[in-house]
Design a protein around this nucleic acid. Structure first.
Length: 558
DNA sequence: AAGGCGTCCAACCGCATGATA
DNA sequence: TTATCATGCGGTTGGACGCCT
């Protein structure tokens, strides 16, 4: 489309901008409205002047009247946009300041792609500006294979989330659930609770993980490619919508994480888990352990059907959720799962992370930030991994490291291909999660040997100085922390993993033994996958996490 | 100098929501 | 209750521009 020059159009408009229909000059595309061809394309200074003048006289709003009465041959939407983004007073122009950038990152961590809401926190900035900034930033960081959120942002989000939790807010969650007819059978929880008496590690399961996964996991339907359209939730719920972030008080009060739960509840487009079945884990105990009775495959990261790159069915559009820090009630986690620390946040960002916190984060629809980071990071890392892991996939002798390697690869090659989206960000994400996070290397099965994700040789990503610092800093982490942030499966189920490890430690079982078992279990999963013994639907990344549990259980019963 | 390529950003488009007739 | 309109939001597009080869 060629554009009318400012000069020529300025001249034309300056002559008369009264109620005479403008005849499209043919230079600019336009659409007919009431027989008038409305202009499209870049605004000229003359048009701006007309619009400004009109708004001064009549105020904002009633934008369609602008076209009728001012002689501007622009549709109302165009006028509104032009005014809002360029002409209204107090608009800040120019590059974002460091403070604004920090705020954007922070807000995005909380809100996800809620540009308008973010703009409300940035006086003088428009949603469009912020959106453009973020998109370019994403692309840049994506290319660089870097995490989107600096640790301090995650930490702050975490703290705010805790504050919000303390403020309460469970009631509306339940309401929302009911409104959406998302019912979680009591029997599911009964099973879980029953297992708490049977399985020592279940006993320590924090309510929080269940409820948070309920809420956030259910709420993450926008990541489900298989979300039934019947589970429709309007694309956007406005501020009037009751928040949805926790299941219900019967399990635990779940205050809404951050403020966005108020109006982003439909970002929590809850998916109806019905119709999904437990597809791979033959262990009934493990099944029962699955949180909230959800089928494993219902987690976006747990099944290969999720694709952030392809449209989901119905209204389950892939609206990124915001980063959400889960229930961080330290008391509920017991001694083995302390509150995430700052360094944890580092790892949290740098690599997909496991703790119960992340677990719910990943499940959360409001987690766009983190999931974004995971996806982007994963894309880069997984491509690097794919290049370097060709040989591992063909190896018949598998070391633990190889297992995870080929496991990862098979994850990609089987599950993501199944869903017809081989380049699905999540597919890559899952792959990279494993490649990056699986700490159990051939050189040592001890959990203490876990290397920081960024030290993996497969990653040839250049790190910015600050980010490199985070990475290096993690080398000094305690084993438990490394566990938290390097277990691939921990990404989804590590709260239980942590609990289990802690329990095993209490029982005098070495972490090495646990690691070996887990590796074996991983290998088992891997073999299952490679052998195609699992259904093509509904399972994936999280499988090892859940399967790990029985392994630990066995340890505890030794 | 010219072409390719990537980035930035203004603007458009489709959809959802709320108000009102 | 339904239809229509106005508005707002988020995703996407496409042109301008700069850099590189």
């Amino acid at each position: 489309m060629s554009h009318m020059t400012n000069e020529s159009e300025d001249e034309m408009l300056s002559k008369d901008h009264t109620d005479s229909p403008m005849i499209d000059d043919g230079n600019v595309g336009g659409s007919a409205s009431r027989g008038i061809v409305l202009k499209k394309g870049p605004w000229t200074s003359a048009e701006d002047a007309i619009l400004v003048d009109y708004v001064k006289k009549h105020g904002e709003g009633n934008w369609n009247a602008v076209q009728k009465h001012s002689g501007l041959f622009r549709c109302g939407k165009s006028c509104r946009l032009r005014w809002a983004n360029h002409l209204r007073p107090n608009l800040k122009k120019g590059a974002f300041t460091a403070e604004e950038e920090r705020l954007i990152i922070e807000l995005h961590a909380k809100m996800g792609n809620k540009w308008a809401r973010m703009a409300a926190h940035l006086p003088g900035r428009t949603d469009n500006e912020i959106k453009n900034y973020w998109n370019t930033r994403i692309k840049r960081r994506q290319r660089a294979g870097l995490p989107l959120y600096p640790p301090e942002v995650c930490l702050q989000a975490l703290q705010e989330n805790q504050q919000n939790q303390n403020a309460g807010g469970d009631h509306a969650h339940h309401d929302q659930l009911q409104t959406n007819s998302y019912e979680i059978p009591d029997v599911t929880f009964d099973s879980l609770k029953a297992n708490q008496g049977f399985l020592p590690y279940v006993q320590e399961l924090p309510d929080i993980s269940v409820s948070s996964m309920l809420m956030k996991g259910f709420g993450s339907s926008q990541y489900y490619s298989f979300v039934p359209s019947t589970a429709h939730c309007p694309k956007r719920l406005r501020e009037s919508v009751a928040p949805l972030s926790g299941y219900d008080g019967s399990l635990r009060n779940e205050p809404p994480p951050f403020d966005q739960t108020q109006d982003d509840s439909c970002d929590n487009k809850m998916s109806e888990p019905s119709g999904l079945s437990f597809l791979y884990d033959p262990d009934p105990i493990t099944r029962n352990l699955l949180p909230f009775g959800l089928n494993q495959g219902s987690h976006p990261l747990l099944n290969g059907n999720f694709s952030a790159s392809k449209p989901t069915s119905g209204a389950a559009k892939s609206e990124l959720p915001s980063l959400q820090y889960p229930e961080t009630d330290s008391g509920s986690w017991g001694s083995s799962s302390p509150l995430p620390l700052l360094e944890s946040v580092d790892a949290f960002i740098q690599s997909p992370q496991p703790s119960g916190t992340l677990q719910s984060d990943c499940l959360s629809p409001q987690n766009s930030g983190l999931l974004d980071a995971l996806i982007h990071e994963a894309n880069t890392l997984s491509s690097a991994k794919n290049q370097s892991s060709d040989k591992s996939s063909s190896s018949s002798t598998v070391t633990p490291g190889d297992i995870t390697d080929s496991y990862t690869q098979n994850m990609c090659e089987t599950k993501w291909e199944d869903c017809g989206d081989p380049i699905s960000p999540l597919g890559n994400c899952a792959a990279s999660i494993f490649s990056e996070c699986t700490p159990i290397s051939a050189s040592g099965s001890s959990l203490a040997d876990i290397q920081p994700a960024a030290t993996f040789p497969v990653s040839n990503v250049k790190l910015e100085p600050a980010e490199l610092a985070w990475t290096l800093d993690r080398e000094n982490r305690e084993i438990s922390t490394q566990l938290d942030f390097s277990r691939p499966d921990a990404l989804l189920g590590s709260c239980w993993f942590d609990q289990s490890v802690a329990y095993a430690k209490d029982q005098g079982i070495t972490t090495d033994a646990i690691a070996v078992l887990l590796v074996d279990d991983l290998g088992s999963d891997h073999n299952q996958m490679a052998a195609g013994t699992t259904s093509s639907q509904g399972w994936g990344l999280g499988s090892c996490a859940w399967n790990n549990m029985p392994a630990v259980c066995q340890i505890s019963e030794l």
